[in-house]
């Protein structure tokens, strides 16, 4: 009885996984189809109502990839733009948020709770709410239409603070005490003990942050007009909708995200776990 349940359970789980993965599989599948075959996916054949794409490319081709990878330097420009933004913001976030999270978790300030709540509140606000304020600030600083317009506000985001704080909270106080007794300064404690022990949370913040940044749409849409600075996420929608090149580009866009995900997966899970435990 249990065996049956196990099998059916696994079967159902497998089905679930397939469903979850199917859009991505479809994407990869389609990116190898040439424009003739693709038209089957978008336009129903005469006399019928439905357009069915081929599940496997019957006439596989590398043309789409060639078009994107060989013939459009623009793709590479926006690729490096996106990567640059993600890297810069992530680095900045680490520099700013790690100490802040540490501070929140260790300090016994009176207003700690309220301040932290404020942070949470800010974190929860959709971008659109803060959009105007950010615009005003950026305009005053003369940063509109530059890379800094996106990087700076993102660096000061409260989200990594939130995640990292959680994992810092789980570090037992005794370890720190003993370090202090040994004569370590606060910064040293942070660097030598806090970061390694809280690495799960930090990695989680990095991975989640990167994935979010790789997908970023609203900020560049609002703040950047100069085409040279566009990120990949905005470049993709500008390609020809029914062509194969957009599919190939999408497939290539997947790759760095997939890499980051795989690399950080363990820590990501650990970090999420840590953040799920209430203080």
């Amino acid at each position: 009885m249990k065996k049956l349940r196990q099998i059916s359970g696994h079967g159902a789980a497998a089905l679930l996984c397939l469903i979850i993965c199917s859009p991505v599989l479809m994407l990869v599948n389609l990116s190898f189809q040439d424009s003739l075959e693709l038209s089957k996916a978008f336009v129903p054949p005469t006399g019928q109502d439905l357009a069915m794409p081929d599940m496997l490319p019957l006439f596989p081709t590398l043309d789409n990839f060639g078009e994107i990878l060989l013939e459009s330097p623009q793709f590479y420009k926006v690729f490096w733009n996106s990567l640059g933004i993600a890297a810069a913001v992530t680095a900045g976030q680490l520099i700013i948020a790690v100490p802040a999270a540490w501070g929140f978790s260790r300090t016994k300030l009176r207003f700690r709770r309220q301040l932290f709540d404020l942070y949470v509140l800010l974190m929860l606000m959709p971008f659109q709410v803060t959009m105007l304020s950010q615009y005003i600030m950026l305009d005053k600083l003369g940063l509109m239409d530059t890379r800094a317009a996106i990087i700076l506000p993102a660096v000061f985001s409260a989200f990594p603070v939130f995640i990292i704080y959680r994992s810092f909270c789980s570090i037992p106080e005794e370890v720190l005490e003993s370090a202090r007794i040994d004569g370590a300064g606060e910064w040293q404690i942070l660097l030598r003990i806090g970061i390694p022990m809280g690495s799960a949370g930090i990695m989680a913040a990095v991975v989640l942050g990167f994935l979010d940044l790789w997908n970023m749409v609203e900020q560049p849409l609002a703040f950047i007009r100069d085409r040279k600075l566009y990120p990949l996420s905005l470049y993709l929608p500008m390609l020809d909708r029914t062509g194969g090149s957009i599919l190939a580009a999408s497939a290539v866009t997947l790759i760095p995200a997939a890499f980051v995900f795989v690399i950080g997966q363990d820590k990501l899970e650990a970090g999420i776990i840590a953040s799920a435990v209430k203080e």
Partner: peptide
């Protein structure tokens, strides 16, 4: 596997959504 969709860039998926949900879609 379940976590994977999170990693997929939206812009990449949009086309697939269109494909599935267009009037003549799957």
């Amino acid at each position: 596997v379940l976590l994977f969709p999170l990693a997929v860039p939206t812009a990449a998926l949009v086309l697939v959504w269109k494909l599935l949900f267009q009037p003549a879609g799957m």
